[in-house]
Design a protein around this nucleic acid. Sequence first.
DNA 1: CTCTAATTGTTTACAGTGTTTACATTTTAT
DNA 2: ATAAAATGTAAACACTGTAAACAATTAGAG
Lengths: 233, 233
Amino acid sequence: MTTRRERNRLSTIEEIKSTAWKQIGELGAASLSLRAIAREMGMTAPGLYRYYADRDALVTALLIDAFDSFSAALESARDACPADDHAGRFFAIGRAYFQWGAANPQKYLFLFGTPISGYQFSGEVGPSAQRSFLVLQGVLGEAAAAGKLSGAVSTLGLPTSLQSQYEMLGQYGMPYTPEVTHLALTVWAVIHGITSLHLYNYLAGFLGGQMGAFIDHELEKLSRQLGLSQENP
Amino acid sequence: MTTRRERNRLSTIEEIKSTAWKQIGELGAASLSLRAIAREMGMTAPGLYRYYADRDALVTALLIDAFDSFSAALESARDACPADDHAGRFFAIGRAYFQWGAANPQKYLFLFGTPISGYQFSGEVGPSAQRSFLVLQGVLGEAAAAGKLSGAVSTLGLPTSLQSQYEMLGQYGMPYTPEVTHLALTVWAVIHGITSLHLYNYLAGFLGGQMGAFIDHELEKLSRQLGLSQENP
DNA sequence: CTCTAATTGTTTACAGTGTTTACATTTTAT
DNA sequence: ATAAAATGTAAACACTGTAAACAATTAGAG
């Protein structure tokens, strides 16, 4: 049972975080300010310390929330496709990844860009961060299990050093084969690279307004390399 | 002819920048502080304003220097390979890109990560930034001109929207074909993605100490996709 | 060489930041 | 009703970037 005080506390925590997100969206993650949050909430800065030990603790909580929201966006895009349409699911999460970043640039940079000055990554965010990666890994894993990953897997074998490294992960609970893990990492790197360069505005000079065509074309290329789509979509 | 005062001024500017780099290397780019620089130099903070209009002007100068040093590293790696060894040059700049980032994490994140709080990208850095991209584009362009880019170019044509966008760039002085420009962008995205995820420590949990094997394997895959290397190296 | 002007630096000050300490107030539980 | 816990504020400290006023040094012209 939740007492009145506990409800108030939770609601205050929510207000702190939503105010923080509002300011991150307006001014960027780097200029997050406890005092500004308190000011906008109509209280003084030291009062926030009753809810978060220090600024880093708030940043950690925001990171966890953002990763969870990011993962939820990927999962919902994935679930909009039938489970046996592996190519469709791959496209869906690829587009969702990029579009979530494009729609929430400050949030994405908060997750995958240099965080706050002096912030040290807390181990608490690990599970939430891995959850988003697991979406991609899961789609590739199920495609592999269904025998639909005919492409790049076999054409160029993994070097033994990577092979044994991935096998070691399996012994610690990684639920997919070395090939799937490796492909998920490389696909992640590609999509993150495009999204990241886009958000830093390094691509606009080359692509003009054709960013959407660019990402779609690259996803299609990846899908073909993986052997997911054999014919034109 | 350079007067004594001008030499002093230049030497002070160099000291400011080198002190800034030292502190960026130690504490990260986000916690760059004019006062700390002045303190370490044995002067007071307002004195720095005789050399840079504000902190953003210093950041801009540092960005230009870092891009130039980055480009120089890529160019020197490229020139260590004979001009007709296109595959070798591709590997060389790919490895040099990643290794420069791994060896200078704070510098790389300074260039391709969220910069300083509230910093607005100045147009002055454009030329220095493009120079590094031109190294990659140049290697692919010369390979294409020599007919050594047999791979992915033809297997999947560019969509017309991208094709015409790249052609428009050509009319504004872009010295390479649409295919070369597009491939250079995608290769850049891949290498940047891997480097970026590596520097944010998102890969260590998966790859352990096998980061070098990972990047080499991915470069080899890229090289094959481009048709640069047809047989084992 | 002298005088003027530009350059370089310091001192002081203001507004902003994260954080700590001490204190007051409110709410809960005994 | 009383003791304890929770929540907030006020004041202070050590930082930050930046602006204004002032002093010292240096360069060039007469």
